[in-house]
């Protein structure tokens, strides 16, 4: 049995696989203690199938916390793991858009799942999931409610600021100006999608485009992304946050065999 543990800035994901089949997985918030969250995610994934750490042949860790963990000593970046996981489940994918909490990544891969090029948002959080999370908090809404409001709106209020903090101020100003909350929220999703699209253009849009990461769970964002990119594919049979952890488990198996 092989394990992939993806310790991201927002959530930690553990996946257990055997014979290229997912046996179990667990997702929890990363919090501030990556050691604890990675151990907990792996333990919970093991508990679900009544297994123990001793049943695991090899573990690969990935994500920002890949070095800050005691569950495994082999680390691979989430770029390589994400590419491996996507190409395993969606071999037709050539462009990956992974929208995470701290990072958004656009990755071009070939038919073997090898990374040809990648681009990430710079250190500003405005192109990531954190953008919507921050504003959701200031509006007193949760992300699901935000997405639902966005989908209701036929209009888009332009949010011009490229800074998350300034965008919050701009939202308040738009509300004070009497614009509808639905239109403002759609404007926020549209602004984020626009930034993500800019990132995707840096690696080039090549079909099939697969959108994953926590952002893929946001229907409001996905609609706006489709307006920019065109047709995009979403992981339907697996949680879109799991792909790098799946890739990590697959790499663990490949390394073990070789």
């Amino acid at each position: 049995m092989f394990a992939g543990v993806d310790i991201g800035s927002a959530s930690t994901k553990a996946v257990l696989m055997r014979d290229s089949r997912i046996l179990s997985y667990y997702i929890l918030g990363s919090g501030s203690d990556f050691r604890k969250s990675s151990q907990e995610a792996l333990s919970e994934a093991l508990n679900r199938i009544g297994a123990t750490v001793g049943d695991i042949d090899r573990i690969i860790t990935t994500g920002y916390g890949r070095y800050i963990t005691e569950v495994g000593s082999e680390a691979v970046t989430e770029i390589s793991c994400g590419a491996r996981g996507v190409s395993f489940l969606y071999p037709e994918a050539r462009t990956i858009v992974d929208i995470g909490g701290q990072d958004t990544k656009a990755i071009r891969i070939n038919d073997k799942g090898q990374v040809l090029n990648f681009a990430m948002n710079d250190k500003c959080a405005a192109g990531t999931g954190r953008f919507l999370e921050r504003i959701a908090v200031s509006l007193g809404l949760d992300l699901d409610k935000m997405a639902a409001l966005s989908l209701k709106s036929p209009t888009i209020t332009a949010i011009s600021s490229t800074c998350t903090v300034f965008a919050e101020t701009e939202v308040v100003s738009r509300i004070s100006g009497g614009e509808s909350l639905e239109s403002i929220v759609r404007g926020l999703h549209n602004a984020l999608a626009g930034r993500i699209y800019g990132l995707v253009l840096r690696v080039g849009v090549k079909e099939t485009v697969l959108v994953c990461g926590g952002g893929a769970l946001n229907a409001g964002l996905v609609r706006e992304l489709r307006d920019f990119i065109g047709d995009v594919t979403l992981p339907l049979d697996v949680d879109p946050r799991l792909l790098p952890a799946i890739g990590a488990a697959l790499i663990a198996k490949e390394r073990h065999v070789s």
Binding site: Y64, V76, T77, S80, D103, V115, M120
Partner: peptide, 18 residues
Amino acid sequence: RIFSEAEVMNRIDSFLEM
């Protein structure tokens, strides 16, 4: 001040893997 160690090294590691 605008250097982000974790983010830059993450990119470098990905590049090394490529």
